[in-house]
Amino acid sequence: MSRPPTFTPPPCARSRALDTPRGEFAVLDALPSGRPLGTALLVPGYTGSKEDFIALLEPLARAGYRAVAVDGRGQFESPGTDDPGTYAQEELARDVLAQAGALGGEPVHLVGHSLGGQIGRAAVLLDASPFRSLTLMSSGPAEVVEAQQVKLKILGDALATMTMDDVWAAMRAFDPPAEADTGGEDLRRRWLRHHPVQLIETGRQLATEPDRVAELAATGLPVHVLSGEADDVWPVPVLDEMAVRLGARRTRIEGAEHSPNTGRPVETAEALVAFWAGL
């Protein structure tokens, strides 16, 4: 679970609803002081939310970019449904296309963290025209490693039979001592507002995602593979190989693990800006 350093957005960002043909989505919309050099759409990972990108918003805006972090369908402050079909990957990808379209103007730089990267990839494969580039942040070519598949199965089974509050208590009981007291009430509040069906269905996607790297490479869209130095969801050598297959820019953020956006936000923002500026 990503642990944002804060749930309070910087002064350059405002919390609002993004109206699209597929419904409203909660976003944090950060604007630079002058005319934007470009717009970035930031898509969070599994159990995450727009707040996972809070620490990126100010450095991206300072560099001249508009940055819009979004809660996907059924995540935190964006409403979900009880229908599992609404969380099929293609449906979530069409949500991303609608979000990009609602931002207006030129094609956007799409950034997807973990699950968000695979949903972003699916959106690009449906229609690459709304996008200037794709950054896959700690997001691999196919299914997660076996140990993570086991965790997702256990969590999915628990969500099907327990309340969100009871699942939260059980998860925190297994947190490492260093993490047991971090995040506090904000993390709990976010967890309780996630839709359990969304978590069950997207967890299944992470455990069964096929390798679509060749399809993505064939689109010709510029791709950036960004990660930390270590990753327990997709091994870093797997991400390295994916970057080679894509002909992508490759960045490893020193000192970061699966969530460089929260662990090393300044360095991550610098890497994103360098990639966009070089296109």
Rank of each mutant, 00 (worst) to 15 (best):
L92M: 09
P79L: 13
L31A: 07
H194L: 13
S139I: 02
P237N: 06
R73E: 00
R66F: 09
V213Q: 13
A17H: 00
V111L: 01
P107I: 05
K50N: 02
L126S: 03
A256L: 13
G112W: 01
K50L: 15
V213A: 03
W276P: 05
Q118N: 09
E146Q: 12
T135A: 02
F53N: 06
K50A: 14
G64R: 06
A67F: 14
L37A: 14
E143Y: 15
A160L: 15
F53P: 06
V70N: 02
L57R: 08
D231E: 07
R245V: 05
I253E: 04
G156P: 13
M1E: 12
H194Q: 15
A217C: 14
V273E: 07
A13S: 03
T161Q: 15
G105T: 11
L126N: 07
T268V: 14
V108M: 11
H194Y: 08
T163G: 15
R193Y: 11
M137D: 09
Q89D: 11
E77T: 14
G112M: 01
P32A: 12
V27T: 04
R73L: 01
H224D: 13
R62S: 02
D19Q: 15
A93T: 01
A63C: 03
V144L: 00
T161A: 10
Q89A: 08
R35C: 04
L28F: 14
P196H: 10
S138E: 10
P141W: 06
H224S: 10
F174S: 15
H194F: 06
D211C: 13
L110V: 00
S227M: 09
F131V: 08
G247F: 11
R73P: 05
L60F: 08
L115Y: 08
A256C: 10
S227Y: 03
H224R: 11
L155G: 08
E185A: 08
L216F: 07
R132D: 09
A180I: 06
D71Y: 10
E91N: 01
S138L: 02
V233F: 05
A55F: 02
P59N: 07
F25V: 00
V145A: 02
R264N: 02
D82C: 09
P44E: 05
A217N: 03
G64W: 12
K151Y: 14
D240W: 10
R189Y: 03
D19L: 14
P260L: 12
T6L: 04
A243F: 03
M242P: 10
S78M: 03
L226M: 00
R35I: 10
T47A: 11
